[in-house]
Amino acid sequence: MTSPDNLVIERYLAGDASPDERRVVEAWLREDPSRAARVAQLRTQVDRANALFDAHQGWQQLAPRLSHGRWSAARPILGAAAASLVFWFGWQGWSNREQQLAAAPGTSPSVALADGSRVRLAPGSSMVWRARPGRDRYVRLSGEAWFEVAHAETPFRVYARHAVIEDIGTRFAVDARDTQGDVAVTVEEGEVSLATVARDSTQAPHRLVAGQGASIDQTGRIASLTDFDARLAWVRGDFVWRDVAVSAVAADLERWFGVVVEVDDSLRSLRLTARYAHQAGAAEIIEGIALTFGARVSRDGTRWTLTRSAR
């Protein structure tokens, strides 16, 4: 077939080709898979420009300088909590009060608690905490987080929906994103106990050691998890999908990159096995997934659409 005009290809890459033009370019790309791959790469090259700028942190630095009274009082807080939204409930004796952190989609802030523990929130998650060594240490978590608990005699408790995870110094991840289902805990180092807060549960707390993962349902029943690596992948900066529905992959991308990924019905239930570094960025990953399924990607700002290529 005759190859499309250069400017038609350009419009296709920019996302403003007409439907007819799109069809021509896509037919041309289908002729030669390596050509399609190179075009995807080309797009990625242009798209790769730094994704490092952190708008949350940037705004927190900028806002006080806009000389608007509303921010001046908040400056010390904002300085201490880069890349996230932190609200202290009150000024006086704040260490006695609960603190709160929410991670917007596309952000994964890490916070040091007063007892020396560190918590990293996955995007779209939030937590309320109080960390007073010698008194009480706890986190109420919604969503997903990674914990590195500093060793201390006071137990450190994580409350996530119906589950309570307790330890005195270890590294583990908690996934309580599913608001209906189970809470999953994955232990990388040390040992934790896993129980339910349900009063009528007759189950004894379950002990989990390094290298183990388990989920707990509302009644306290434990099931062990096998996808240990995949569950901790995000902490290491990776996506690991093993036989995961494209719709769920899209949801992950939305959370991690703060974008919208729409998936055509015909693709939603297809299953993907892949590993990508977060660093690759949304564009590269989405293009990669599209190539895997021979799907078509279109983009409108931060909104991506994956559709089945017309055959």
Partner: peptide, 9 residues
Amino acid sequence: AMHLRWKEG
């Protein structure tokens, strides 16, 4: 120009 077109639409 490509950056503005392809990355920013």
